[in-house]
Amino acid sequence: MTALLAARGATRRFGDHVALHPTDLEVQAGDAVALVGPNGAGKSTLLALLAGSLPPSAGSVERAQGASVGWAPQRAGLYGRLTPRENLELFARLADEPDPPARATALLEALGLRDDARPSGVLSVGQRQRLNLALALLGDPDILLADEPTAALDDQARERFWELAAGRRAAGGAVVFATQAGDEPARYATRVLGLEEGRLV
């Protein structure tokens, strides 16, 4: 079975500090991989490498041909002076989505975001995290990578997110997420990987 996403000896150094030692990981269709470990274990670094937002210092990250990735970083990546709709429409246009306004409307509703003129920078932390996740779900990605996706969400929003993640898996995709929430790996993951001091354990 061909992996949707694979890390092969992926390593990341920041100066002299090795944030992630050579790591091998394969993500198959239908997988829900939870990355767990203490702060500074290398979870965010591994997710950023898998998302392609951080180049590996050594090794490689491979993606199945045609497979798309949606990436929700731990600190919401969005334009604070644009409204949530404007953020979604801009990212949709950049990703060549066919109908950006319709897609933005659907995601605003799906994540329970208000469609008003407030810039995203003044939203609450939880609202910004919903927008962060909505941006990751643009384009119905085959692989959803999320770094502590539910950390700032209320219970209702958490449930909504996991429903959307399950939908991705059901459509032949996969989810890889880092979490500190104790019950989430058991409830939502098909595989749990522990990281400690930059190594898979």
Binding site: S53, R75, G77, L78, G80, L94, A95, L135
Partner: peptide, 9 residues
């Protein structure tokens, strides 16, 4: 704003 890594550009 932490968007470079996720920007489809």
């Amino acid at each position: 704003e932490n968007v470079i890594g996720r920007l489809p550009a």
